[in-house]
Amino acid sequence: MRIRRFSVALPVGDLAAGRDFYVRHLGFRAAVDNDRVVKLLHDDPSYELVLVPRSGWEGTEGAVLALEVDDAAAEEERLRAEGVEITAPLRDEEWGERLFQVTDPNGVVVQPVQWIGGRPGDI
């Protein structure tokens, strides 16, 4: 699997407070900021931090490791063929991501993601 970038998504109780903390104290900037997601970028475009509301967070109660790949459908097919359980099937999100989920042996959700539209906040 070729990984282009990675991000960590954290379910939080207060998106605005989280955004303000990371922007004010840790040098991030908000590339996407709405009531569903806050995407924070730093100087290195190969990683990002994503804050999502804890209530209604689909598929997990903890962090999600998102791995940006070139072809999410091909990765899903490859992992399925290797016997990996797909815990959330391939889908296209309205904001331009194609993604699916697997869960590692320790319960960490791993989400291969492909951008099929413009990638918000690209540097």
Results as ranks from 00 to 15, higher is better:
R54M: 05
R36I: 05
G56P: 04
K39N: 04
S55A: 13
R24C: 03
H25Y: 14
P45I: 12
Y22C: 04
V38I: 14
F28W: 02
G13I: 07
D43A: 15
R24A: 15
N34Q: 09
D43F: 07
Y47I: 11
K39Y: 11
D35T: 10
L15F: 10
P53S: 08
D33L: 03
S55I: 01
E48V: 00
V23G: 10
D14S: 11
R19I: 09
S46E: 10
V50P: 01
Y47L: 10
D43P: 05
V52H: 02
R29I: 00
N34S: 06
A30N: 06
G56N: 03
S55H: 05
D44H: 04
H25V: 08
D35K: 09
S46N: 15
R24W: 01
G18Y: 03
K39F: 13
D43T: 13
V37T: 12
L15P: 13
H25F: 14
P45W: 06
R36L: 09
L26Y: 09
S55M: 00
S55Y: 00
L49M: 12
V38C: 11
L51F: 12
D35Q: 13
G18D: 08
R19G: 02
H25S: 11
L26I: 09
D44R: 02
D14P: 13
G27R: 06
V50T: 14
V32G: 07
R54V: 03
D44G: 00
R36C: 02
D20W: 11
A16Q: 14
D33E: 14
L51W: 11
L49D: 04
G18K: 02
V12N: 05
S46H: 15
G27T: 06
V52Y: 00
D14Q: 12
S46Y: 12
K39P: 00
V50W: 10
Y47N: 10
V12L: 11
V38Q: 06
A16C: 02
V12E: 11
V52T: 11
L51E: 06
G56T: 03
D35M: 06
V37I: 14
A31Y: 01
R36H: 13
R54C: 02
L49C: 05
V50L: 15
H42T: 08
L26G: 05
A17G: 14
D14N: 15
L41G: 03
K39R: 13
A31G: 09
D35H: 11
Y22D: 06
A31N: 01
R29V: 09
L26P: 07
F28A: 03
L51I: 07
V12K: 07
V52Q: 04
D44K: 01
S46T: 15
V23Q: 09
E48R: 01
K39A: 00
R19D: 01
G13P: 05
P45S: 04
P53E: 08
D43R: 14
V52F: 03
F21T: 13
R19Y: 05
G56F: 00
D20L: 06
V52W: 01
Y22R: 07
R24H: 13
F28K: 00
G56H: 00
L26A: 14
G27C: 10
P45V: 03
R29Q: 08
L49V: 02
G56Y: 01
D44A: 02
G18P: 04
D43Y: 02
